[in-house]
């Protein structure tokens, strides 16, 4: 990324710096496509996963699962229910009427639950439905070969360690571009506007790093959960296949935003529900859709997280709980 901090070049320009920028974006496109093993030509750079989702879903009628990210859920004409573990129901998928496509999240951002995405793709395609998969959470953590056959895949830069504010919509078979932002013909007509060169180059570099590393192991996540369960925690989607880095834990009588604040004061970053612009945590629609009654705090492990850090988190939660329970 470093050279591009200083070079304000437009990749669409004809001069030398413009050509350099265009080639940098082109390399990033190959790096991001490489994550999926898909051709670079099908990668459309966007401002992030929400824009990628909206680009696909603002056209047509979609069935979406009840645990999608808000930027997907809001476009759903039909909502597919999930079970108590947060896994979607094939019966509801097969019964969905009056839709052109299905959108399903591969790994959930709140609970980490993994949907049986390859089977969804096959069932949907057998009915002639298009399939969109939000896989923002998944590179480096899940087998992306499971996405074979999808029509659209959403990826996000900062979820894999790249800069925030850039994402991609992967369109392996092309199709009619339906740009949200119109103007010139950047991104093969899928998105007008000068490229965020700095962000895109960073996204590409992060993609290459993630693609070259072994997949994250769930061992530390399991150690964290064992420690938190011993303190009385209840893990959402505990019995389902999950992302190896995400854990959503509730403690009876404790409000998740208060535990998040108490942990923040102890120097630990966790989250609750989905944040709104003012910073207030809202009750989680994802947990509500699974009938999970607790107020869940989300712990996310990074590739650099150590066992000592996991133990420190468990000890910090243990220190915070008495005051939280007493005043809950």
């Amino acid at each position: 990324m470093m050279p591009w901090f200083a070079i304000p070049a437009n990749p669409s320009a004809a001069h030398g710096l413009g050509r350099e920028a265009a080639m940098a974006v082109d390399r990033a496109r190959a790096q991001v496509g490489g994550l999926l093993g898909w051709p670079a030509a099908g990668v459309v750079f966007t401002s992030g996963a929400s824009e990628s989702n909206a680009t696909v879903m603002s056209r047509g009628r979609w069935a979406v699962t009840a645990v999608e990210h808000p930027s997907v859920r809001l476009w759903g004409a039909v909502t597919l229910p999930v079970d108590a573990q947060g896994v979607l129901s094939f019966d509801a998928l097969d019964a969905a009427e009056g839709v052109d496509g299905v959108s399903v999240m591969y790994g959930n951002n709140e609970t980490g639950v993994v949907q049986p995405v390859q089977e969804v793709i096959q069932r949907a395609r057998s009915r002639g439905l298009r399939v969109h998969v939000d896989a923002a959470q998944c590179p480096g953590r899940l087998d992306l070969a499971e996405l074979a056959g999808a029509d659209f895949v959403t990826l996000s830069s900062h979820k894999i360690g790249g800069p925030a504010g850039v994402g991609a919509l992967c369109v392996p078979r092309g199709g009619d571009a339906a740009p949200l932002i119109r103007g010139a013909s950047q991104e093969r007509g899928w998105r007008a506007g000068t490229h965020n060169v700095l962000g895109i180059v960073g996204f590409g570099a992060a993609a290459e790093v993630v693609a070259g590393e072994p997949r994250v192991s769930p061992a530390l996540r399991d150690a964290l959960e064992a420690g938190l369960v011993a303190l009385g925690g209840e893990v959402a989607s505990e019995g389902a296949p999950r992302l190896p880095q995400t854990s959503c834990v509730a403690f009876a009588g404790v409000l998740a935003p208060d535990l998040v604040a108490a942990l923040d004061l102890a120097g630990i970053a966790a989250s609750a529900g989905s944040a709104c612009a003012s910073g207030a945590a809202r009750p989680s629609a994802v947990l509500a859709a699974m009938g999970f009654a607790g107020s869940g705090v989300r712990f996310s492990l990074g590739c650099g997280t150590t066992e000592a850090e996991v133990l420190a988190v468990v000890r910090a939660v243990e220190r915070c709980l008495p005051a939280l329970r007493e005043n809950g």
Binding site: L255, D258, A262, L265, C320, A323, L324, E326, N327
Partner: peptide, 8 residues
């Protein structure tokens, strides 16, 4: 006040 107490 209660929520403040819960934050220690």
């Amino acid at each position: 006040l209660r929520r403040a107490m819960s934050l220690g």
